[in-house]
């Protein structure tokens, strides 16, 4: 599928990527590419391996016990599995979790958490990063007067944009979204999606979602996973209007999943 566009070098590439948790295989030989500055949506029913694929890309699956993998993953043609410092990789590949997960800190310190861990301690520099990140996440105007209240005091949608801002603060190149709107109301969801589209200029984004409409709204391309396999990958409009695979059609029309 990537071969169809040989002129575009993918930002992220997986080659026959498989993952097992103990004896259970959750990803089966997934081969795909993510283009720079696109939003790739990954859709599929529960247990289709979407989240595991996402967590492979920043090696967050390393944290779990009994994980075995095979195949290859590349970021800018560098092997992700052999990244000497996993921390440096995770700085380049940011992630926003499913439920808004502010740390038990103020709004300001939530955003400053990453930069501080990467040894930025100067107040003025941190203030600059926090403002820039909150603006990029479309949250600045709503929180600029209460940067020192707890992150938990914000609404759900604001919390999720706070998490996006926190991810942006370490200046990643890629942002992974793991069902970022699963706990949000439609208006909050719209604001998060607005932020994602605004981020396309600078970042490559991978969005795992249970919400097909969301994939259709923000994804440039869409991948359909089922039982750990990549069933189909294509331009979002093509996937939603004329899927090539019967299983994709079945899922989109609600026959299973």
């Amino acid at each position: 599928m990537v071969a169809a566009q040989p002129d575009i070098r993918p930002k992220i590439r997986s080659e026959e990527w498989s993952v097992w948790y103990g004896e259970r295989q959750v990803l089966r030989s997934v081969t795909l590419g993510v283009r720079a500055n696109e939003i790739l949506s990954i859709i599929g029913p529960a247990n289709s391996g979407k989240t595991t694929f996402l967590r492979s890309l920043n090696r967050l699956i390393d944290v779990a016990r009994g994980v075995r993998t095979s195949g290859r993953l590349y970021l800018d043609e560098e092997d992700i599995r052999e990244a000497r410092e996993v921390e440096a990789l995770r700085k380049r590949v940011g992630m926003v979790l499913a439920l808004p997960a502010p740390l038990n800190l103020s709004v300001f310190e939530n955003v400053a958490y990453g930069p501080r861990r990467h040894h930025i301690g100067e107040r003025a520099r941190l203030e600059e990063i926090v403002e820039k990140s909150l603006r990029a996440a479309y949250l600045w105007d709503e929180v600029k007067d209460r940067l020192h209240v707890s992150g938990f005091a914000l609404s759900g949608g604001q919390q999720q944009r706070l998490c996006i801002a926190r991810t942006l603060a370490v200046e990643p190149e890629v942002i992974l979204f793991d069902e970022p709107c699963s706990g949000l109301d439609p208006i909050s969801t719209a604001r998060v999606e607005e932020a994602m589209i605004g981020l396309k200029k600078k970042y490559t984004q991978v969005l795992v979602t249970n919400n097909n409409m969301q994939a259709a709204r923000v994804g440039d391309r869409t991948a359909f996973f089922l039982m750990g396999e990549l069933i189909e990958l294509g331009e979002t409009r093509a996937i939603f209007t004329a899927p090539k695979n019967q299983k994709t059609e079945g899922y989109l029309s609600g026959r299973f999943g």
């Binding site: 995770r90 700085k91 940011g94 979790l97 997960a101 740390l103 038990n104 861990r117 370490v170």
Partner: peptide, 27 residues
């Protein structure tokens, strides 16, 4: 302490010790 605190910290590129020290232990 919620597991998400650890995941968030690690995903931001913090080391495991930084995660313990700044995201887990204070709580």
């Amino acid at each position: 302490v919620p597991p998400s605190f650890r995941e968030v910290s690690l995903a931001l590129g913090a080391t495991r010790w930084q995660t313990v020290r700044y995201a887990v232990l204070p709580n």
